[in-house]
């Protein structure tokens, strides 16, 4: 059974946010009104977190693209009263909308703040409904949603591989953000396959995981040169 993981090379990231929009387009993520956005209700499964450090003129900005960490030991699933969010056999933390009762316990439990609540039924102008991705449902009001590692792509990739009577190969299944990254800073694959790119990169001396000391065992691995100090307070 593969264990799907993502590697993000922060040394290559330019902070362009292509991953953010690739994700929104792939997963039918609605936009909210400016007023709602001001209340912090923008939904962004993949979000680039900027960290501005230091004082003029020695200022630097780091960009941290943050999808769902797909933790091996996820805090969110433990608090779900209805088994709407759980970790599946392949290590993906699923979010099943029809089961979700909108209690938002998982939203509070997630230390990476990857879970988003639908305060309203998503709204698109009629014209824009035409470009929704048919592989992904649109969420109703009152459920929590989050990054799925584009698992619908996995279902299709598996089916395709089976139809061609072969095993799933590296590169068959890649989430939209990884596919689009202009700087080539994102990688995806099976962490349990020692020969896979992600497994090799995960062994790099540059590798670290966000908030590792919480014991969440995230499957998103970051690479950076030098030591990672963690987000500091903005100057």
């Amino acid at each position: 059974m593969p264990r799907w993981a993502m590697v993000i090379d922060l040394d290559k990231c330019t902070g362009c946010q292509a991953c953010v929009i690739a994700c929104k387009a792939e997963n039918n993520i609605p936009f909210v009104s400016p007023e709602q956005a001001a209340m912090g209700r923008t939904i962004s499964w993949m979000e680039v977190i900027p960290i501005v450090e230091g004082e003029y003129p020695r200022v630097r900005v780091r960009y941290i693209p943050r999808p769902c960490m797909q933790c091996d030991n996820p805090p969110c699933t433990k608090v779900c009263p209805v088994y709407a969010t759980f970790k599946n056999e392949e290590g993906l933390v699923a979010q099943i909308y029809p089961r979700c009762i909108g209690c938002r316990y998982c939203t509070a439990a997630c230390p990476y703040t990857v879970k988003y609540f639908n305060w309203y039924a998503p709204q698109w102008p009629e014209e824009m409904r035409a470009c929704l991705n048919p592989d992904v449902s649109t969420r109703p009001k009152g459920v929590v949603e989050k990054c799925t590692f584009c698992h619908h792509r996995l279902q299709k990739a598996k089916e395709k591989a089976r139809a061609e009577q072969r095993e799933l190969r590296e590169g068959d299944y890649v989430p939209a953000c990884v596919q689009s990254c202009p700087a080539g800073a994102m990688f995806f694959g099976d962490l349990d396959d020692p020969m896979s790119t992600v497994a090799q990169l995960a062994r790099s001396a540059r590798a670290f995981r966000l908030l590792d000391d919480l014991g969440t065992e995230p499957k998103v691995i970051y690479l950076i040169e030098g030591e990672w100090y963690g987000p500091r307070k903005r100057a």
């Binding site: 362009c16 946010q17 292509a18 953010v20 929009i21 690739a22 929104k24 387009a25 824009m128 470009c131 689009s180 990254c181 202009p182 080539g184």
Partner: peptide
Amino acid sequence: RLCPLGHAGLQ
């Protein structure tokens, strides 16, 4: 690859 604007061509 594609930039954010490229993806938003749908909109």
